[in-house]
Design a protein around this nucleic acid. Structure first.
Lengths: 344, 344
DNA sequence: TTGAAAGCGCTAACAA
DNA sequence: TTGTTAGCGCTTTCAA
């Protein structure tokens, strides 16, 4: 005879000589049950090494207390900080976080979303991949009755009726240009990501608006598109330097892009900040150890993460009151050794 | 009347005019069902927007296809790489990964483990927190019939009967000392973490053995203990310098510890590598951007992660054949601008 | 090749 | 305060 691997409510019930329901209630602290019975039940449960079966509980209760999360990458300071913040905020509210990673791949992202829906998570927090174009999947999630909150990256064009928590990218980009102008530069370029993704689009918009405000040229050669990775920065900067007219200052759309620029500049024998100055979007634990230490616009991933969870829980708890919610988290310019102007 | 939120097998069955069982089998590609029925069922399921309920499936099948993971931190290159590798390996084998983060807190770690057991994951891969001392919880997991694989960090003294996938820390530390000796140093120190955790213990052992082999002094003042973080490196290095006799070379037990040393050295006006040379354990995407770029012993987190998953799946699939398994992944010395000796 | 019956472990509604 | 009844949605026998 095979012994059952796990202790169940029935095992406890038999021992205490009450019904399964009484045990269930006692263990969950339901006010129905008398102090005396409760105590006894808890004691026996403990002695038996009982571990509640969440699978069964979830099936019966039709809620999982799980939040699904989809991010494009993990090994990247911004995302790992964001994830950590989400985990902490969810943990505090007694939610389990189910993390999935799309690896910037739309196909995989879709598959992960389907899995999360199949797991019947109570909500999905998602930061879309660079590739994501198909919008149908998000509408499908909603049709399945699961709330969605986009964090940081969301598909463009904007989806009507979906909540979001975003960085004030436009404001951040403006801050960079303002600083560059203040530092005395007039030839200002941007190595930017994909303008189809919202962060690309917004940072570019803030960049261009600010330049215009200062009546500075918005040269198309100084507006390099690409991805958000180190290679993209490397390639973008080399491309920028191939044209004869090299800018004095470059705004890197992300921190990895800035790393790529550092690398390319080193190879080309250009000194930072003397030959080419730079500020980027995105903080990192390492950024102050660069040589020269890199100034940046911080995106506040902690605040983004906790805000995303807060928003999600409000939607879950008030399903018909709050149909849509948008939060914008402000950025902060952090000056180090770059972007502060040359000594002339 | 409240409409049911999700389509179920019954809904499909009704539409196709077969039984629920037939639908279940058809959808899972069971050979019982005829091609014709299968096709029809799949079509209807698709039209209806059916999403299988994993909760119900898991409850019934008594396996979850989920792997639980417990790590101490996320926002740290080693762990984020390790996690990414685990996710990728598990995804390939059709397993979902449930990640939890202990934040180096034993209490929280224990709670996460209980949650994972309650979720009835098929196995738990764990890298223990710095604080972890209580061994009972791991025995309990096993008693619950869930296999455990320790990755990188495991509790010390070693647990009998538990599988592990570890870095060859001792060999790595030896590599560092060998290199330091080769570079001409004889006054060699170590800023090391907690020797109660296996990585601390093993790296220290490799360090000391190597020194002895070269008949170099193992001075207790040159053997600073502490944690594994940046602050610990900072504090440790300052402490090291307070004594009159400053070493020529310091082995940093982790990459963050090295960062702390860089910071402290900068404050103290000491140049690296001229005044104090350094090599650390642990790679990072950023390490080559330090000034000077930091040599290190890489721990190969990708290989560690995929190896942990491989080991776990072998145990899951052969529950009685393989009681225990130990994998050691070799390290690799990567030389950059430090640890290569001074020009004299 | 198909389906009826039984059950996974738990909870909600309603009675007692 | 406690227990009975009836599922949650699925899978696994085993019989038709």
């Amino acid at each position: 005879m095979k012994r059952r691997a796990h202790i169940t409510l029935d095992d406890i019930a038999k021992k205490v000589k009450v019904s399964r329901v009484t045990v269930s209630k006692a263990l969950r602290g339901h006010p129905d049950i008398s102090e005396k019975t409760s105590k006894l039940v808890r004691k026996v449960a403990n002695d038996l090494g009982y571990s509640p079966n969440f699978i069964a509980r979830n099936l019966s209760a039709r809620r999982s207390n799980m939040l699904g999360v989809v991010v494009p990458k993990i090994a990247h300071f911004f995302f790992s900080s964001l994830i950590e913040a989400i985990y902490n905020a969810a943990f505090e509210k007694n939610y389990e976080t189910i993390l999935t990673v799309s690896q910037e791949n739309a196909e995989r992202e879709k598959k992960h979303i389907q899995t999360l829906v199949s797991m019947r998570v109570d909500g999905i927090i998602i930061s879309v991949s660079q590739e994501t174009e198909d919008i149908e999947i998000f509408k499908w999630i909603r049709k399945m009755g699961i709330p969605v909150v986009f964090v940081d990256r969301m598909p463009y064009p904007t989806l009507e009726g979906f909540s979001s928590v975003q960085v004030d990218d436009k404001g951040g980009a403006s801050q960079v240009v303002e600083q560059a102008v203040k530092a005395g530069y007039r030839k200002i370029a941007m190595i930017g990501g994909n303008p189809r993704v919202n962060i690309g689009k917004n940072r570019q918009a803030g960049f261009e608006e600010s330049l215009k405000r200062h009546q500075l040229p918005v040269k198309p050669e100084w507006m390099v598109h690409g991805g958000f990775g180190k290679e993209d920065g490397y390639r973008g900067f080399k491309q920028l330097c191939e044209n004869g007219d090299r800018p004095e200052f470059v705004f890197a759309i992300t921190y990895p892009v800035a790393l790529g620029i550092y690398e390319a500049a080193k190879e080309l024998g250009l000194r930072i900040p003397e030959d080419i100055d730079i500020i980027c979007c995105g903080e990192s634990d390492m950024i102050s150890f660069l040589h020269p230490s890199l100034s940046c616009v911080s995106q506040n991933p902690q605040e983004l993460g906790s805000s995303a969870v807060r928003t999600m829980l409000e939607i879950i708890e008030h399903p018909d009151e709050i149909p849509e919610r948008h939060v914008v988290v402000p950025t902060q310019l952090i000056l180090r050794e770059t972007g502060i102007g040359r000594k002339r």
